[in-house]
């Protein structure tokens, strides 16, 4: 199984958004906190619908929240 190829900047974006907690983000996008933990650890590639909901929470386009492969660039933010 191993690490998934879809990475994300959720942890940084949460911090930038008034230090939003994992539980608050989970409640906003309709998943459990454990799923946010798995996403941040890179253990889970979200469905397209969940990815859009997360991006919408941060008011950012999808590609500024998620990346494919080894991308290590920081998100530009708003």
């Amino acid at each position: 199984m191993g690490k998934v190829l879809v990475g994300n900047y959720i942890r940084k974006l949460r911090f930038d958004l008034n230090e939003m907690t994992q539980q608050q983000l989970a409640d906003k996008v309709g998943v459990t906190r454990q799923t946010i933990v798995a996403l941040e650890k890179g253990n889970y590639s979200p469905s397209l619908e969940l990815a859009f909901r997360i991006a919408r929470t941060f008011n950012l386009p999808l590609e500024e929240v998620f990346f494919y492969g080894e991308n290590s660039e920081k998100p530009s933010g708003k």
Partner: peptide, 9 residues
């Protein structure tokens, strides 16, 4: 405990 099963579950 989580009250529902989400897509990961």
């Amino acid at each position: 405990e989580p009250a529902f099963a989400d897509e990961l579950d």
